[in-house]
């Protein structure tokens, strides 16, 4: 049934497609993460001048299809004279840059809301207790506030990274040869499903499994205190130490 010669012939192309997908995922994911940290602080702030502009940004980005955002950046922006005459014009002519920009803005919006939710759910007593123990503001932020928020955000953030990986398939619509584009090209050349889209599906499935495993390990590392089997194994001396500290 399966035509293995097509698969073997196209394997190098799929391999290059995988690399493009991974580069898009990593660059957009890291940029989104870096932007979401300050933005989520502003979003969770009680000051309306800080939280509202961020809310409007995330609302618009989360309320419109990513494909529309991608087309506005790639096809739409060149219509504007300001863009064509600016120093950034060479960037906006590049489909890869446009895809990266669209994915970064989109994942920033979702990640900001996830982090802002985690920040809002910080128990006030946790921060108050740390302050009462004499920790400085920076110490509270670094040792209490951010680690707690990160732990609360981690499961949802893992989902968002998988969603971002799936979203990179849209880059195929603006001429970028990532995994799905390779699959489509094989389909148009040979008119076979399994060897084209089936192969692309295998790659995406594998990426989903790997990402899920990575986040499961991260959750094990950061959320170990919630594992009932682990806390059951705490030795008596450790229990006493905890009680004394509390």
């Amino acid at each position: 049934m399966i035509n293995w010669s097509i698969i073997i012939e196209m394997l190098p192309a799929f391999w290059r497609g995988l690399q493009i997908t991974l580069i898009l995922l990593c660059t957009a994911g890291l940029a989104g993460l870096a932007l979401a940290v300050p933005l989520s602080l502003a979003r969770a702030s009680s000051h309306p001048l800080l939280s509202w502009p961020v809310f409007i940004f995330t609302y618009i980005l989360r309320g419109t299809p990513l494909l529309v955002q991608l087309f506005i950046i790639y096809y739409g922006l060149p219509q504007l004279d300001i863009v064509r005459q600016s120093a950034f014009w060479p960037f906006f002519r590049d489909p890869f840059f446009c895809a990266w920009l669209a994915f970064t803005l989109n994942t920033t919006a979702y990640t900001t809301e996830i982090f802002a939710g985690a920040i809002r759910n910080t128990p006030a007593g946790e921060v108050e207790a740390a302050r009462a123990m004499g920790l400085s503001r920076t110490q509270v932020l670094r040792d209490i506030f951010w680690p707690g928020a990160w732990r609360r955000a981690l499961p949802q953030y893992g989902n968002e990274v998988v969603q971002l990986m799936h979203a990179t398939a849209l880059a195929s619509t603006i001429t970028i040869v990532e995994i799905l584009r390779v699959g489509r090209d094989v389909y148009y050349n040979h008119l076979v499903i399994t060897e084209s889209f089936g192969m692309a599906a295998v790659f995406f499935l594998a990426l989903t499994v790997v990402l899920t495993l990575i986040f499961r390990i991260l959750e094990k590392l950061f959320l170990r205190h919630l594992d009932p089997r682990d806390s059951a194994n705490v030795s008596p001396s450790e229990t006493t130490k905890v009680t004394v500290n509390a």
């Binding site: 799936h166 979203a167 398939a169 849209l170 195929s172 619509t173 799905l180 699959g183 489509r184 389909y187 499903i193 889209f197 089936g198 692309a200 599906a201 995406f204 499935l205 989903t208 499994v209």
Partner: peptide, 21 residues
């Protein structure tokens, strides 16, 4: 499990072209 592990666009192309065939 399988549907949620794959991009929407890929599934759409598979079901559209695959269904046709």
């Amino acid at each position: 499990t399988v549907i949620r592990a794959l991009p929407d666009l890929l599934l759409m192309l598979v079901i559209f072209y695959g269904g046709q065939i």
